[in-house]
Write a protein that binds this DNA or RNA. Structure first.
Lengths: 220, 220
DNA sequence: TCCAATTATGGACGCAGTGTCTATAATTAT
DNA sequence: ATAATTATAGACACTGCGTCCATAATTGGA
């Protein structure tokens, strides 16, 4: 075998699929089948209950083949997730924040659009998002997503509010934001997405910006 | 043996410790030791890595003894958690909300105090809370906590705002609240509780009620 | 087209940890 | 003091993991 499975579970999210670009077709087929089988089975029986053999069976592969590509169940899950996360990150970072006056209406619209992007992308990969947000597999996964969002918020604050924000530590703000967003996202996906992505983004934005005490106000 | 371990993992949280009140002292000692050993070891090595034998070893008990009381690792964890959750629920529900005008200053102070209760209680059982909030063990646990908070919010809304809340479904509001609160709680515990419980409650309340756009305003 | 390289396969292996059972010892409540 | 209950150690079968091997099948490149 040419491809060594990710060694360190901590940065497996980044490591996988590196030298894969020009790889043998069999490799791509095999991994694709494994990823699909995993997601399907997780939604059917849950992650914990799955054996490696269940996955390879569903994927029509020999059990030994699995270990040519992944160290264990978790590595496969991380690989599946990484693809989706990379997708989203590309979309969001392509949507770079313009230099806008903090609190301006334009900034508000931009932020709202960025949040809508997240909801839209989640809708597109609903299965995987549900797996992630449910915390199936290592809980470390959803924690990492949470941390990623926190970091994005902190970067945003750094860029757009170089002055103070006296009554509130940035960490508190970032975690508040990330927790609330992920909770809404989870609820939305688990309940059949009863509203549009833009609607959800608008509701979240209003709650976050105006608070529950000023629900009538629409301005940003 | 006289005591049958919880059968259904779904309602094990409620089932355990029912006929325990007049039980043999050995039973109480044994379970206590098992619970303590579990929590200590989770913080040392993490939940997943623990074998039943590790736990009984730390507790100075025979491995077979474990199965006289719990079906498996998870049942023991659920038992430990249930005790703490019951404690908190008792405290909070004893702190029943008075009939206050929605949006009044008194109502604001009450709500803030109720939230502070949660933070205080978490500080008192920090070890267990960290285990819960990290999602160690079944992720179902933290999901259940989240659901409990949602339900509390919905009940509060039912009681205090029988009229409308037009631009926002109650589910959305409840999940937003629960997600944000748990995120702050988690951050607080994982970072050495750098602020007082009352401070955290105040910050959370301000964010939730006034939003990030009105950070200067202190009134509720 | 054919060849060397790579990957897929099925089966067997040792290993670790689980949950059960038994006979026996220790502790408990009354 | 005694009958009942619980704790214990050890053995047991069982499941699932991760590795290895020889062999078959597929691939990309010359």
């Amino acid at each position: 075998m040419r491809q060594i499975p990710p060694v360190n579970p901590e940065d497996a999210l980044r490591a996988a699929e590196e030298s894969d670009r020009r790889a043998d077709r069999r490799i791509q087929r095999t991994r694709q089948q494994l990823r699909e089988a995993l997601l399907a089975l997780i939604l059917e029986r849950g992650y914990e209950a799955l054996r490696v053999e269940d996955i390879t069976e569903r994927a029509n592969l020999g059990r030994a083949t699995f270990y040519l590509h992944y160290r264990d169940k978790e590595a496969l899950l991380l690989d599946s997730i990484q693809q989706t996360v990379d997708e989203l990150l590309a979309q969001v970072s392509a949507f770079a924040p313009p230099r806008l006056e903090a609190g301006s209406e334009a900034a508000a619209r931009w932020l709202q659009r960025a949040i809508a992007l997240v909801f839209e992308h989640a809708a597109g990969s609903a299965t995987l998002y549900r797996v992630i947000l449910r915390g199936e597999g290592t809980a470390a996964i959803s924690r990492r997503i949470h941390a990623m969002i926190c970091q994005a918020v902190l970067a945003y604050l750094e860029a757009h509010r170089p002055h103070q924000m006296p009554p509130l530590p940035a960490d508190v703000l970032a975690n508040y934001f990330a927790g609330a967003l992920l909770a809404l996202l989870t609820w939305w996906l688990e309940n059949g997405m009863p509203y549009g992505a833009a609607e959800m983004a608008a509701m979240f934005y209003r709650l976050f910006y105006n608070g529950v005490g000023h629900l009538g106000a629409t301005e940003g």
